[in-house]
């Protein structure tokens, strides 16, 4: 490892190191790129790809060591995974049983003409590895289970079913994982951090029977997905970095049509 560190110091300039030098180090010292990046950041050197991230090397190292599970890899999940990969989160576990269909092309980050009928998680993994090969990505084409929640320190709720959201929230409560909730419909969305204390998801979905009320898939326009996914990714990073967030004690209702963004504080229920 000393040789690797000497190589990194030799190649670094102005406190940064280029990707091509990190790749050369990985090849020369037979180490995964993630390990090279770990050593780079521990030396207080910033990989050039992160130099505009407004984060310190210690913060970037925290993200590199983080383990995130994104449940649902469609609109919200695909965009959240894209942002977290670019930001430098070191491990993503992507869960989705579905494959891309034409009606996904309007808003889902990794739905392209070329990926139609491919499993969403596989298409996402391929694209994400091309963006940031230092990130480890597990692509699981299946419904989520408790193991997925256990595998991560923060879980991102990018599901499209109230019933499944309630099950996921129960798993996260059981294992003490923070759940970054997001949901979209038409020009409207919501985001918040569900914890055992605030019971957020149960409050937002007062009856899973509502599943049957909307048998057809909801209409969703891409800007709503971009806004809510961006907020979910920001909240995930803040949780990992230990930064405070008002969304730990409230949820945000977003109305892109009227440009209204309303923070709803957690409140005790009244009968």
């Amino acid at each position: 490892m000393d040789g690797l560190r000497r190589f990194i110091r030799y190649k670094a300039a102005d406190g940064c190191i280029a990707l091509i030098d990190e790749l050369a180090a990985a090849a020369a010292f037979e180490q995964p790129l993630a390990e090279v990046e770990e050593q780079v950041l521990r030396l207080g050197i910033m990989p050039r790809r992160y130099m505009r991230n407004c984060l310190s090397c210690d913060q970037q190292l925290r993200l590199l060591r983080a383990r995130i599970c994104v449940i649902g890899c469609g609109g919200l999940g695909g965009s959240v995974a894209d942002i977290l990969t670019r930001t430098g989160v070191g491990y993503l576990r992507l869960i989705d049983p579905d494959s891309f269909e034409e009606h996904n092309l309007n808003r889902q980050r990794f739905a392209t003409v070329a990926t139609l009928s491919q499993p969403k998680v596989q298409a996402a993994r391929t694209a994400l590895m091309a963006i940031n090969p230092a990130v480890n990505i597990d692509a699981v084409q299946a419904e989520f289970c408790e193991t997925d929640v256990l595998a991560a320190e923060v879980v991102v709720d990018a599901l499209d079913s109230a019933e499944k959201r309630l099950i996921l929230a129960a798993f996260c409560t059981k294992y003490g994982r923070s759940l970054v909730h997001g949901a979209v419909r038409e020009w409207y969305g919501q985001v918040g951090i569900a914890t055992a204390a605030n019971n957020l998801v149960a409050g937002l979905y007062p009856g899973a029977v509502q599943e049957s009320a909307t048998p057809s898939p909801p209409q969703i326009i891409a800007p709503t997905v971009a806004v809510i996914a961006g907020m979910q990714a920001a909240e995930t990073c803040k949780l990992l970095l230990g930064l405070p967030s008002v969304l730990s004690s409230s949820w945000l209702s977003c109305n892109l049509l009227d440009c209204e963004y309303e923070l709803i504080p957690d409140s005790p229920s009244i009968p």
Partner: peptide, 22 residues
């Protein structure tokens, strides 16, 4: 609150829809 709750004079009632897409 809930659909079963009773409102009173001067109350402010806010009603949000279920937003469920992902």
């Amino acid at each position: 609150s809930s659909l079963k709750a009773t409102v009173a004079e001067g109350d402010n009632l806010a009603i949000f829809p279920v937003i469920g897409g992902g």
